[in-house]
């Protein structure tokens, strides 16, 4: 009986003590409640919450805070959210909604996979592009191309990038949110932002002279200017031995012909993954 009372007393007093502490915490929670700005909460809910940082803030929460405190008036900075998010934020803030910038997606500007580009040596260490870049500017003959170790895969917040069988990476345009993190991390600068609705783009980043490019990679732009000269309407221009496409040009006359005329076949259709078949 004595023992039973002792055990009962211990259990009862501990429970009482716990209840007291809980009660105290409940009071404290009320006293120390942080009044959150309702606008801030609404904006936070409207943002995608990916914390990609393309808006220029440290994360979605910081952008929402700046917007709610009216330190920031531009509601179009969230690119992953697209037009829907812009409309929603503008509505919350009572600002007239405006059309956002064109949707941009990342795309690898390199076709020099295994067997197409010359490989100088084999790198057997850190699986990291930055580290490989420090060794003779990369393992490929072409120092502008994709090294395929996938530093971009690690930074992508939405897992839109994956390795391909031929030693390169590819971006899923459907999943890309245009945060540009992969563009910033790539030491070769071979990841490019292109408009999501473009029909063609130049899949090469080599600024080497034509002869050298040809020796190093069979799918490299040799800067021959065929696309520029023969199809002046197409919007291709060559600078630094590398062709580029002026995406602002509305009419796309002659782009298909230019792509077919390209000797290296490095002008490709944005929808396709591989070289253009002739």
């Amino acid at each position: 009986m004595e023992d039973f009372l002792r055990i009962f007393g211990a259990v009862a007093s501990t429970s009482l003590f716990a209840a007291l502490l809980g009660f105290g915490l409940a009071i404290a929670a009320k006293k120390f409640r942080v009044v959150k700005n309702p606008t801030l909460e609404k904006i936070s809910a409207a943002l995608p919450g990916l914390n990609c940082g393309i808006c220029g803030y440290t994360g979605c929460e910081a952008y929402a805070e700046a917007l709610s405190l009216e330190k920031e008036s531009d509601t179009r900075k969230c690119r992953p959210g697209g037009q829907a998010t812009i409309d929603e934020i503008s509505q919350i803030l009572g600002i007239e909604s405006s059309a956002g910038t064109k949707r941009m997606v990342a795309r690898l500007a390199c076709l020099g996979g295994t067997g197409i580009a010359v490989q100088d040596f084999s790198f057997q260490a850190y699986e990291d592009c930055e580290s490989l870049k420090l060794h003779f500017d990369g393992d490929k003959g072409c120092k502008y191309g994709c090294m395929g170790l996938g530093s971009c895969i690690k930074v992508c917040p939405v897992d839109a990038i994956s390795k391909t069988d031929n030693g390169l990476v590819e971006v899923s345009a459907a999943r890309c949110i245009g945060c540009e993190l992969c563009v910033k991390v790539c030491p070769s600068g071979v990841m490019k932002m292109i408009p999501a609705d473009t029909d063609f783009f130049v899949a090469c980043n080599s600024r080497d002279k034509g002869k050298l490019t040809k020796a190093l990679c069979s799918a490299g732009c040799i800067g021959c200017r065929i696309c520029e000269k023969k199809f002046p309407e197409s919007g291709f221009q060559v600078e630094d031995n590398l062709a580029s496409l002026n995406y602002n040009k509305k009419d796309n006359e002659g782009r298909m012909e230019a792509a077919q005329a390209c000797p290296a076949k490095c002008i490709i259709q944005a929808g396709s993954k591989t070289l253009l078949k002739t």
Partner: peptide, 12 residues
Amino acid sequence: SIVQLVEMVVRK
């Protein structure tokens, strides 16, 4: 309890 309390106080 202490940790919870400290968290509230710090947040405030």
